[in-house]
């Protein structure tokens, strides 16, 4: 039981982290970025959750993050964040736990790409026009860069995170 409580507490922390990162991201000047592109650091929390906490918890954090976005920037942001977040969470969880060959960079990139894919999909539905896919090329290229950076940062902070949460949960060891 202790573990469950700690787990919930960890989830809360991660969710809060995700929201803070998300807020900081929205403060960045967007002028120098291509439209719709994000640095993606807010995904760090999601990545850790997907890696350590298991699918249901990771999804919960993604939903919470989406709600936060919805409160901050409106209904469309909620749906976009939800779709993108859920998609990338699924992908990340799969890659962390089943895909043995990919390193942090790869997972970061694939998760960023799937996040954008999810967002484009829901955007197309919301505007009723598939032409929004015209954003795909530029988003894809940006996702490669953002995903790589996020992946590297994640790998960098991983040991510290693991150490800090060691007392909370038993992390399943993976073969390298």
């Amino acid at each position: 039981m202790k573990q469950k409580t700690y787990k919930i507490a960890l989830m809360g922390l991660l969710a809060a982290t995700a929201m803070v990162l998300s807020y900081l991201e929205s403060m960045l000047p967007t002028a120098f970025l291509p439209p719709g592109a994000k640095p993606g650091f807010s995904n760090l929390a999601n990545m850790f959750a997907a890696a350590v906490l298991g699918l249901p918890s990771a999804l919960t954090i993604a939903v919470l993050k989406a709600c936060f976005a919805g409160l901050m920037r409106g209904g469309t942001s909620f749906f976009m964040s939800l779709c993108g977040g859920v998609a990338s969470t699924f992908v990340m969880w799969f890659l962390f736990n089943k895909g043995k060959k990919l390193g942090s960079v790869g997972i970061g990139v694939v998760s960023a790409v799937s996040h954008n894919a999810g967002q484009l999909a829901v955007a197309a539905v919301l505007v009723g026009n598939a032409s929004v896919l015209g954003y795909a090329p530029i988003l894809l290229l940006c996702a490669l860069i953002a995903g790589t950076l996020t992946g590297l940062v994640f790998r960098a902070v991983l040991p510290a995170l693991q150490k800090a949460t060691k007392s909370f949960i038993q992390t399943p060891n993976r073969k390298e």
Binding site: F96, G103, S104, V105, R155, L158, T171, E176
Partner: peptide, 9 residues
């Protein structure tokens, strides 16, 4: 969880 930074894949 992966300890790898970047792999061939």
């Amino acid at each position: 969880m992966t300890k790898k930074w970047i792999s061939r894949a």
